[in-house]
Amino acid sequence: MPPTDSGLSSSSDDTLDLQLPPEWDALLAAGARPPAPPGAPAAGALLDHLAGWGPADTPAGLFALLPVQPDRDLGRIAAWMNDPAVAAFWELAGPAETTAAHLLTQLRGDGRSVPCLGVLDGVPMSYWEIYRADLDPVARYYPARPQDTGIHLLIGGGADRGHGLGTTLLRATADLVLDHRPHCGRVIAEPDLRNVPSVAAFLGAGFRYADEIELPDKRAALMIRDRAHRHQL
């Protein structure tokens, strides 16, 4: 999670002047993800139908992961990506097309990574990616196990950072994964080692620091939350 105040409000209707590529316009016009490639798993199967998981009751309020809808969410997410504190680690600053291309890669895939808005008491305030780590390139860099599930996140507004909220929501999200993915034994994350507040938030949420791993774009802390120990940490 980004370490500094961005000045963005998580409840604002941040928008950008969007000049979208033709394939994104087609996606918006369709109102949904395009059809999966032939032979791909049924929609949502790889992550046990995340869209139907429902909310979690947390000390901060009712929290839900809502799969991204481009026509509703792109402007907000692109604005968050242009916060310097976020851009330092996500590297998606720039025109909305940059964020659109990042989202499109997931939305046109087979469902192994699902981009989501994090909504707290009805207010969109964070961006999440829930992904099958065992099917992701990251599996080449650590001893992956079948059904490992990964988490990426950013907290959108500076006012929501630095108060332990990230820790609360990470714990809730890891619990959602373990509750709704019965064959998943571990939730993993690979935050940049330089992002000390993010690593600390994962530790506070019951993840353990397992290793340092060298990824193509960063040196990362491998954080793991084990199903077997979920109620002990």
Rank of each mutant, 00 (worst) to 15 (best):
L154W: 05
W53M: 07
L27Q: 14
P22Y: 03
G158K: 13
G185V: 02
E214I: 08
D192T: 03
L233C: 05
G206T: 10
L154E: 09
D48C: 13
L135G: 13
M223A: 02
P84L: 06
L165K: 01
P38E: 10
R225P: 09
H231S: 13
A45L: 03
A201S: 15
Y141K: 07
D179G: 00
S113T: 04
S11N: 14
G156W: 10
T168K: 08
E91Q: 14
R225I: 09
W128D: 03
V187L: 08
L178T: 06
T173K: 02
L28S: 07
L92I: 07
E190Y: 05
Y141R: 08
F207W: 04
S9V: 00
R225C: 11
D25V: 06
L222A: 01
A189C: 08
A87R: 02
L18T: 07
G204R: 09
P191C: 08
I151P: 01
R208A: 15
A56C: 12
G75K: 01
E190N: 14
L20G: 04
T58V: 10
A96L: 00
S113W: 02
L20P: 08
A85S: 15
L165V: 06
D48H: 15
V138T: 11
V86E: 02
L20I: 10
L193S: 08
G94W: 04
T173I: 04
S6F: 04
P191G: 12
P41C: 05
D83G: 01
A87N: 15
R225N: 12
Q106C: 05
R194L: 13
D14K: 10
L107E: 03
G166R: 01
M223C: 08
P21W: 02
L233P: 00
R186L: 03
R219S: 06
A100K: 08
R225D: 07
L176W: 00
Y142M: 00
L233H: 14
R219D: 06
R186V: 00
H152T: 14
C116A: 09
H180F: 00
M81K: 03
S10H: 12
R161E: 02
A78W: 01
H163Q: 13
L120H: 06
M1S: 14
A45M: 04
R112A: 13
Y131I: 11
F207G: 11
C116F: 05
G54I: 10
T4I: 05
V119T: 09
H102P: 00
D48G: 13
W24H: 11
Q147I: 00
P95R: 11
W53H: 12
N195V: 08
G31I: 09
L120G: 09
T98E: 09
G118Y: 07
R219E: 00
A78K: 06
L66V: 15
G185R: 07
R194Q: 13
W24L: 13
P197L: 13
A42D: 11
A201W: 06
W53V: 11
R225M: 10
G7N: 00
P67G: 12
R132D: 04
T173F: 03
M81E: 12
